[in-house]
Structures are given as C-alpha cells and as structure tokens.
C-alpha cells in the first residue's frame, strides 16, 4: 500500500481486453482489472495482505506475438501500454488445470467447489486425496501482517510443505485470536449438495461456458453467462 501512495501521480494507460483503460501507477494488474469490474478468481489474495503470487489462479495473458505470456496479476504491476487479456483460452485452460489440481488434493473445500462451478470444471482426472490445507498462506500473512503475532509459518518443502507453529509446538506468540481461521478459504466444508459422493460436486454449474473462444480481445463477462445460447458442439 505504501508503494501505491508513494508513486501516486500520472495515470498509467494499458489495454484491457482490447479496451484502453487507465490505472493508478502503483497498483497491481489484479487491482486494476477488478476496478473495472472484471472477475478474476483468486485464492491466496486478500486486499489487506501482501500479495503472495502462489495460487496462480489470477493469471492473465500479457504482451503479444512472441512475447505473449501468462503472469500472476496479483503481483504484476500495471505498466504503460501493456496488453492484458483476462479470459483468453490459454488463461481459462490454465486456471482450470490449476483448480483441478487443487480439488484433487482438497475435494472437501466449498470454496474450491464453488469456484469449479464458476469456471465450469467438469472433470477431475487425478486420484483424489483428502487434504484440507491448500497452502495459500493467507493465514500466515494474516497472523504476521494484521495480528503482528507471527505465530505460524510454512515448514517443509514441496509436497511435504505444511503450515505450523515453530517446531510444531504450542506457540507462545499465538493469542488464539482465530484470524487464521477467519481468513482461511479452505476450512469451510462444501455444501454436500448434489453428487456429494463424487470428487467434483458440480452442484452449482448452471450455464454453458463463457464465449471466450469466439472473440479474441473483446469479451463479455457476465457471470453467470446468460446471453448466448450454445449448441452442444460448442461445449468441448
């Protein structure tokens, strides 16, 4: 936030899905995109905390031609003249795959299941595990940045990574304030609605995919999408 205040000045102009838009020079792409009302899914991001760039659900496509690439919008600064596409096929495909991996690990999370419905994820191709934590690190940052406690942190590496108190012992720093539980996106149980026995709940999928594949830069962003009627062949 401090950086934002420091660099407040002339606005930065960039291209958002083909439209010329302006943003505060200190803001991140995600902030700027959300300011314009577009929906970008996130799991490890919270307005009140330092962006972490770990869940990668907020990826957007920037640049053009050979320099076209995906970036995590929560940690990428807005830049003059940048071309940004928030819902291109490549972006959607990547987000879906990331979500699929997360659900395969934590099928019991309501947040993930809701997101799956929104992104119209239809299938989990991996063997389900039954973990709870998605390692987004929101609780760690919450504890440190907002509660000034630093009672929890990451331990281990790779697959063995987990969140814990130092040396796995009861922490004297912890005031049991519960902020970690408050901010956790995963600890809410899924609704157990339709098809609760399956890995993917799919209870809330109500429409066919957004029209991303039809248009390159100009897209509609109605969620849920109601405007276009699709034939079954389109849904692939």
């Amino acid at each position: 936030m401090s950086e934002k205040n420091r660099s407040r000045g002339e606005m930065v102009t960039f291209m958002l899905n083909g439209a010329r838009v302006q943003a505060d020079p200190g803001s991140s792409l995600l902030e700027a995109i959300r300011f314009y009302g577009l929906d970008i899914p996130t799991l490890c991001y919270d307005e009140g905390l330092t962006p972490y760039g770990a869940c990668r659900l907020c990826v957007v496509e920037v640049g053009s031609g050979k320099r076209e690439k995906l970036v995590a919008s929560c940690v990428h600064p807005v830049r003059e003249g940048l071309e940004v596409r928030t819902h291109s096929n490549r972006v959607l495909k990547t987000r879906k795959m990331i979500l699929e991996l997360l659900i395969a690990r934590c099928p019991g999370s309501k947040k993930l299941q809701d997101m799956a419905s929104e992104l119209e994820l239809k299938e989990i191709k991996f063997r389900p595990l039954n973990d709870d934590c998605i390692l987004c690190g929101l609780c760690v940052r919450m504890c440190e940045e907002q509660m000034a406690a630093r009672a929890i942190g990451f331990a281990g590496r790779g697959r063995d990574r987990y969140i814990t108190t130092p040396f796995d012992m009861t922490s004297e720093e912890c005031r049991k304030c519960g902020a970690c539980m408050y901010i956790c996106p995963a600890c809410e149980l899924r609704c157990q609605g339709t098809g609760a026995e399956t890995v993917l709940c799919s209870g809330c999928i109500n429409t066919e995919p957004v029209c991303a594949s039809r248009y390159d830069d100009a897209m509609c962003f109605m969620v849920p999408c109601l405007s276009c009627v699709r034939t079954p062949e389109d849904v692939k």
């Binding site: 990668r56 991996l101 395969a104 690990r105 998605i134 390692l135 590496r157 790779g158 697959r159 990574r161």
Partner: peptide
C-alpha cells in the same frame, strides 16, 4: 518434485 519449494500450485501439485 522433491526440490520444489512448494509455494506455487502449478509446481507443487503439477
């Protein structure tokens, strides 16, 4: 996989 730090989902889970 063993050497991945585990921070980002694509690398850890992928």
């Amino acid at each position: 996989q063993e050497e991945s730090c585990g921070k980002c989902v694509p690398c850890r889970e992928g």
